[in-house]
Design a protein around this nucleic acid. Structure first.
Lengths: 336, 336
DNA sequence: TTGTAAGCGTTATCAA
DNA sequence: TTGATAACGCTTACAA
């Protein structure tokens, strides 16, 4: 026989209504009674039936999702992950309230966060580390469960983080570079923005590996600001001046990167490694314009985060705290 | 207002009971009435409420899962995928009936299949292609939905297949080999069993690529029968006789493969590529004993297959027909 | 062949 | 501070 709230009520010598009030901390129960009921619930390891409660419940639950730059295809991949995760729970009346912030400055982030937080039962956000934002996030953490994705906010009170180990990703690129380039080869290195921690960690990991384990000559890091035209321009400039056996891009716009090299009609084709398994980059692999693309599993970063929040909202499954890292993916022409 | 079976009944001028009988093809309804109700259901795009029906329904649903060799860690990975998928549906009273077949002969497969099929609402099986088994599978296909995983049975009436493109996986290994070996290098190639189609396809893909695009010298394929000791022995023999710059294993027991090479204390360390991201092989990557491991996403092969079957059983979500291929994974020391 | 009514386990309102 | 009761949408005996 299934354990029901009715049985709990009988054991406690009260009615179902009272048990329910205790279950949802809805107050209006004498403390002693509440304590007694709680004890019985714990002892019998009672878990409310999901169907019963969802059949009876009225209002929907809302999960707020905050992503960055809507132009960046990477965040569109995350969006898809979030949508797919919640669509698995469509029976449960869970809806997503999704916001992208444009511009990427502190102010727009705070505005978006504030709009997102109203009438929301849980939050999944891509982190942004400024004192003011951390402060604001901490306020929210007191009210509802909040997880970070992709970019952590380690100094905040967020419950958990899901992302990748960017330093390790950089090391991985280092190893691949070593394996596919001749000893002593020259490598052109470009990144997006120094302030973006995830990208900078990749650079560090890459330099760490190549210095320790290779005799490759790595160029000074060139920063593109993650602007497609600057990626193109600076890459072209670099390859006009020097011969590089390999080219590594830690930031966005790998297509501009490869195009710059392509357009120069060099007599040789440098090995090219970039980041993010987005459609544009899939095509580069397909067409043989890039050799390796490192994927950061944006889809699963969002999917898994939303998934856990759903489980929490429905079954009160505890959210796992701390940092969780997905392995990156290594992609070439044959596994896109 | 939510569309309920009650409303459908009213529109059709019948009772809920009748609608329900139509909904579940439980018979005992006048054909004309049934037709009328069906039409109204279709017109209004009515979908039964999952909570209502699950609250009311009594019996559990059973999904049968047939895996091969329980000794092979790869199938343990698949088992985990299947378990995880169904555990997402624990509210729904769906249980897994899982069978591994030992020995791997036709007879044990048929016995297992037969035991599995009793009182089962859907089947997910790793294929095995013999006329007799195909015949038996086709019988089952008439009764319940059946999908293949990992190894297809293209000549059967199975609904869909989820696996990887083994030929492409072989090509991928070819490309990697080319990239990390010197031009003109020698490669030792081993596989498991010629009769296992998935492995043989890998071999074909590998030879196809290396012949077309490289000047590598590939050894004659040595077959181990997927026995650890033979893997060890034959590999040792090969490396005693020749110097190989690289070693590729398409079958199981990469650990025996690397150990054989290790134990010879060669003055050089050949590049090693193998298959299946199982724990043993993770460790080889970690310890630097292998350079690349190709993962066939066994976890997701099982997870996704079971997941679709659950969706089908609960929401009648149509199962997608035909062949579905997951991209393989490329793994090295930095993404295990 | 069809309709009726009693559950399934929870929530929420209202009365006590 | 509590308890009774009516939903919620569906399934399934059983009655008609």
């Amino acid at each position: 026989m299934k354990l029901t709230s009715q049985k709990i009520a009988e054991k406690a010598g009260v009615s179902r209504g009272t048990v329910d009030r205790v279950l949802h901390n809805r107050g209006r129960v004498k403390p002693e009674t509440a304590e007694k009921i709680r004890k019985i619930i714990a002892e019998n390891n009672y878990q409310p039936d999901a169907f019963g409660s969802n059949l009876a419940r009225r209002q929907e639950r809302v999960i707020g999702v905050l992503l960055l730059d809507p132009e960046n295809p990477f965040f569109q991949v995350m969006k898809k992950g979030a949508d797919d995760a919640v669509s698995q729970y469509k029976d449960y009346k869970i809806v997503l309230k999704m916001k992208n912030i444009e511009g990427g400055n502190e102010e727009s982030y705070l505005t978006a966060l504030n709009e997102l937080q109203e009438n929301t039962d849980a939050l999944a956000i891509v982190g942004y580390n400024t004192p003011k934002i951390i402060q604001e996030v901490n306020k929210l953490c007191n009210k509802i469960p909040l997880n970070t994705m992709n970019t952590d906010m380690p100094d905040s009170d967020r419950i958990g983080f899901l992302g990748i180990d960017d330093f390790r990703a950089g090391q991985c690129v280092g190893l691949l570079t070593k394996e596919i380039l001749p000893s002593g080869g020259n490598v052109f290195l470009m990144s997006g923005r120094k302030e973006i921690k995830t990208q900078e960690k990749r650079v560090e990991g890459f330099l760490d590996y190549t210095k320790q384990y290779t005799d490759l000559n790595i160029s000074k890091v060139v920063y593109s600001g993650d602007h497609a035209d600057i990626v193109y321009e600076e890459t072209a400039n670099a390859f006009i001046r020097h011969k590089y056996d390999g080219a590594v891009l830690m930031g966005a716009y790998l297509n501009a990167f490869t195009k710059a090299i392509d357009d120069l009609n060099l007599s040789y084709r440098p090995k090219i490694i970039g980041f993010d398994l987005i459609d544009a980059n899939r095509k580069l692999l397909e067409d043989g314009k890039a050799d390796f693309v490192i994927g950061q599993q944006g889809y699963f970063q969002a999917f898994n985060t939303i998934h856990s929040l759903c489980e929490y909202l429905i079954h009160k499954t505890p959210l796992s705290e701390g940092i969780h890292l997905l392995p990156i993916t290594i992609n070439n022409h044959y596994n896109i």
